[in-house]
Each structure stands twice: as structure tokens, then as C-alpha cells.
Computed example of a mutant assay.
Amino acid sequence: MKLLGRLLLAVLTIAALLYGGVVSYMYVNQRALQYDPSGPVIALADTTLTRATDVAIPSGGEVVNGWYRAPQPGKPTIIYYKGNSQSFSEEHERYEQFVAAGYGFVAFDYRGFPASPGALTQDNILEDALAVFDWTAAKGGPIVIWGRSLGTGPATYVASERDAEALLLETPFLSAVTVAAERYPLLPVTLVMQDQFRSDEWISRVTEPVFVAHGTADRTIDVSNGERLYELAANKDGLWIVEGADHSDLWDAGIWSRAEAFFQRALSR
């Protein structure tokens, strides 16, 4: 019996050491695991955005780089908060569609992403998000906010701190730590995760109308995140759930027509 007890103690000790090692590794490397700041930056000249301009917006003693195009009279400017991978410039086809419909837009890379040097942290992302909003607001005119994936965190935060006309959230998380807990249920992610993006707390302070879009086959952020976040919104406008759509399928599924209708409703209130 003593031998069995020693063997059991040894197994438990090894398991505890392995578990502690995994937790320590994830804690030390968590931002490398959480973010994917890679990919080329497409030059503005290589798009059809002939009247857009490169902009460098001050933030936290540094700058974030992006593109800006003023809207046509009577149209708002869309501030677009990008997702978790590659440069904002990869989505230039979206901005081209915005401009074709008369909307202005601002799109940019958070510090630490390809076009904007700097440290990639939640604090910096939120600071960058506010700086871009304030820079845009200083130009005058209505503003609507569009956040996609990771960008739904700063988009929700900005809407809770500033006044815009509308908040559109494409494939949002309830919080980043919720997604991490769903992905790693055996790890104490709530205790060790630094960049938690608590959209579930920020949305309680959002007074703008909120529209949420998600797909039932989303393998990156489960659709239940979008559904639960929408339920917390005080000013609900619409919840669009696309059957069979994965994380990057909503543009092809027609989110732009839904977004336009939403923005028009918000501006007519």
C-alpha cells in the first residue's frame, strides 16, 4: 500500500508540474498566442481608393497609420476597427464599397500590427481606438462605428466612452477571456489573462443603437458570444445570425446591405 501511495503521489506531482508548466508557458507567451500581427501592407495606390489619403494619427506618444476618405454630403464616416490578423489594408475591398456608397471611412492598424509600430497590448489598442475616434470627430459630421472580431472589443469600448450614431459588431466576443475559457476550459485563464477585452461590461454603457452579426458555423468565436452580447445591449436594433456562416463569411453573405440599412435607421432617429 505504501508503494501504491508513493506511485500515486509521484503521478500527481508530475501532473501538477506539467499543468503548472503549461500555465506558465501560456502566461509568458499569451500575447503571441492571442494576436496574429502579420502580413503585408497594401499600398493605397494599389487600390481604387483614389481620393483616400494616408493618415498618421497620434496615439500614446506614437502614431497609428491608416487611410481616410471624407464622406459625401449627408453621409456619415465609418470608423472601422479591424480584426486580429494581417493589416487593415487587406480589407480594402470593403472600404471601396463604403466609398462607392458615399460613406467616408477611417481604417488603420493598431500599434503592433503591420502598418503601425509599437507594443501590442489591450491598453494600447483601446488608446489607439479612442485617438482615431477623436481625430475623426474633430473633422465634424456623423460617425458610425464598425468593429470586426477583435475589433469589436475596442469598438464597444469607444462607443461606451464617446457619442456616435451607431455601433455595428461583426462576429463579436462576449469578452476575449470568455473565448479563451471556452477554448481552454481546464486552464485558469480568468486569473492569468492580461488582455481580456471585457465587452460584456463596456456594452452596459453603450447608448447607441447596436446591431450584431454572427454565423452559426463560426469556429473562431462561437455564435453564442454574439447572441449573449446582444442581449446585454440597452439599445437593440437587430441581431443577424447567418446559418452555416464561418468567421470570415459575413461580407460575402451580404453584411454590407444590412449595415447600410442599419446606419440609415440610426441616422433617421
Rank of each mutant, 00 (worst) to 15 (best):
E127K: 10
E127H: 11
A129N: 08
A129K: 02
A129Q: 08
L130T: 11
L130W: 03
A131Q: 03
A131G: 09
A131C: 11
V132C: 08
D134P: 05
D134G: 06
W135D: 06
W135N: 06
A137Q: 15
A137R: 15
A137Y: 02
A137C: 11
A138Y: 06
K139W: 03
K139L: 14
K139F: 08
K139V: 10
K139Y: 09
G140V: 10
G140F: 07
G140N: 09
G141E: 03
P142A: 13
P142Y: 00
P142W: 00
P142L: 01
I143E: 00
V144Q: 03
I145K: 00
I145S: 01
W146T: 02
G147C: 09
G147S: 11
G147I: 02
G147Y: 01
R148P: 00
R148N: 12
S149W: 01
S149T: 04
S149H: 03
L150K: 00
L150D: 01
L150R: 00
G151A: 09
G151P: 06
T152I: 08
P154M: 07
P154G: 06
T156E: 05
T156W: 00
Y157E: 04
Y157S: 03
Y157W: 14
Y157I: 04
V158E: 02
A159M: 05
A159Y: 00
A159D: 04
A159T: 08
A159Q: 01
E161H: 10
R162F: 06
R162N: 07
D163Y: 09
A164H: 04
A164V: 15
A164K: 01
E165P: 07
A166M: 14
A166D: 05
L167F: 11
L167H: 04
L168A: 15
L168N: 08
L169H: 10
L169Y: 10
L169P: 09
E170H: 15
E170I: 13
E170S: 14
T171F: 02
T171I: 14
P172Q: 13
F173N: 05
F173Y: 15
F173I: 02
F173A: 15
L174T: 04
L174I: 09
L174P: 04
S175N: 08
S175C: 11
S175M: 08
A176Q: 14
V177C: 11
V177T: 12
T178A: 15
T178K: 12
T178C: 08
A180G: 10
A180R: 03
A180M: 13
A181W: 03
E182F: 09
E182Q: 15
Y184S: 08
Y184P: 04
L186R: 10
L186A: 13
L187H: 05
L187R: 04
P188V: 02
V189K: 01
T190K: 12
L191I: 07
L191D: 11
V192C: 05
V192N: 06
V192R: 06
V192T: 11
V192P: 01
M193R: 09
Q194N: 12
D195I: 05
